[in-house]
Design a protein around this nucleic acid. Sequence first.
RNA 1: GGCGCCAUCGUCUAGCGGUUAGGACGUCGCCCUCUCAAGGCGAAGAUCGUGGGUUCAAAUCCCACUGGCGCUACCA
Length: 494
Amino acid sequence: MSDSQPIRVRIAPSPTGDPHVGTAYMALLNLIFARQRGGRFVLRIEDTDRARFVASSEQMIFDALRWLGLEWDEGPDKGGPFGPYRQSERTPLYLEAVAKLLASRNAYRCFCTPERLEEMRKQQAAAKLPPRYNRACRGLDPAEAEQRQAAGEACTIRLAVPVEGSTTFRDELRDAITFDHNNVDDQVLLKSDGFPTYHLANVVDDHLMGISDVIRAEEWISSTPKHVLLYHAFGWQPPRFWHMPLLRNSDKSKISKRKNPVSLIYYRQAGYMPAAMVNFLGLLGGGMPQGEDAASEKFSLDEMFARFQFEQIRLGGPVFDLEKLRWLNGLYLRALAPAEFLHAVREGVFSDEYLGRIAPLVQERIETLGQFLDLTDFFFLDQVLPPDSVFLPKKRTLEETLAVAADLLTALEASAWEHAPLEAALRALAAAKQWSAKEVFMLLRALITGKTASPPLLESLEVLGRARTLDRLRRFLDHYKGAAAPPAKAKATS
RNA sequence: GGCGCCAUCGUCUAGCGGUUAGGACGUCGCCCUCUCAAGGCGAAGAUCGUGGGUUCAAAUCCCACUGGCGCUACCA
């Protein structure tokens, strides 16, 4: 990493679902870094996981980041000199890299099946050994292994981690971090489906794209030695590493959708202002002058470009405090000129687009226009929390209803957000729980509308949207958590 | 379990060897006010995780412990 190298940073989200608030946080930090040092900010899509790939996700990532005003300089949608910026379009590059690694004996073919690996892990767990690949295939004769592969036998390519010694790298915020090689696993670099894993693709792309500074979340620290080993194996200069604190739930665990809204779509639809969100993210982890040095905790992206200091970042993971976000959002809303506020209400709550989707759902069942909001209020409410007199089916206990509601959430999370799959998911759930479809539909209706009578459920779900629907279910479950649960267990054994 | 990272009010944070440990959110009270917010004022809230050092002096430096978190996949 020579000092003369131009500053280039990147974010590398994977399109596996709704755009995540953590992605926005990393985008913000990378953007600031680039702007402060005259560098370029790259957006790269890491779509190497076929199993978790969600087709609509990429566009949602673009939209969400643009909504926040976190614009990138190079990316899949706007090109740049180091494309393509979508990993699925770069497979020849990874194959080439793997060939080099194989030739230099820094990697080897592994024919162990997933089942066998699973079995091995079980045994290791039973013997209280750390779960680690036992390197069964590492001693295979390379020529022989190549033949087996050529003959069609499925295999992965693994990194041959040196048996002895250790790897030390510098984290710009923490100084030297050392990992002993016997704590580093022979990581799979190329999956049997021919796609690279994160580790390989990431290193190859960061190098090829001239990334000077890798600014990513702290969860990557433990795999950094693998990355450094790869850079060395390729004979490349590693970038600088800056590991950022992880956003947390209020119980301090890594932020997750079960305990916190994490979808940027949700925040947009729930009426948060992009500037408030960016401001809030900028407040987390330090970086901006606070306390006596700061005129206010309210600041813009431009002010962050001017005043943010990476050296000031606090390493403790900040709790994503919705209360404070809401307060900040209120500040921004109140600061709007009346005309701007009206515009925000129109666009954010009563847009033609949104009303246009809602109106058809009630036209058949309306007698006066004055009833419009009576029939559709749940589309506009921030929260819906019905009492059990509304959601509890006759002949069902609270306990089993809550259990079904929990399964409802799981089923909806896994479903595509369209009429047919949603209906199928609900009917399948009813069958599995031995509830009538009517009961399941009614329960869900109550939970998202707060009423027992509403416009058609499936259509309403589509219009309300995935993010807000799931949030309502989570809030409901959270609210009733413990209400019907068996007496708290003494303490979870771990 | 192993490895790694981290550790100041409930939460976000200031602090960089000598401070009455400061600010913000939240909470509470008062003022304003037809209500509710907003706004103003004020209060409670942190023996700086614990124990050892170093130093005239430690929240600040060092060590140990404890706790939290992360990783431990053919996910990223």
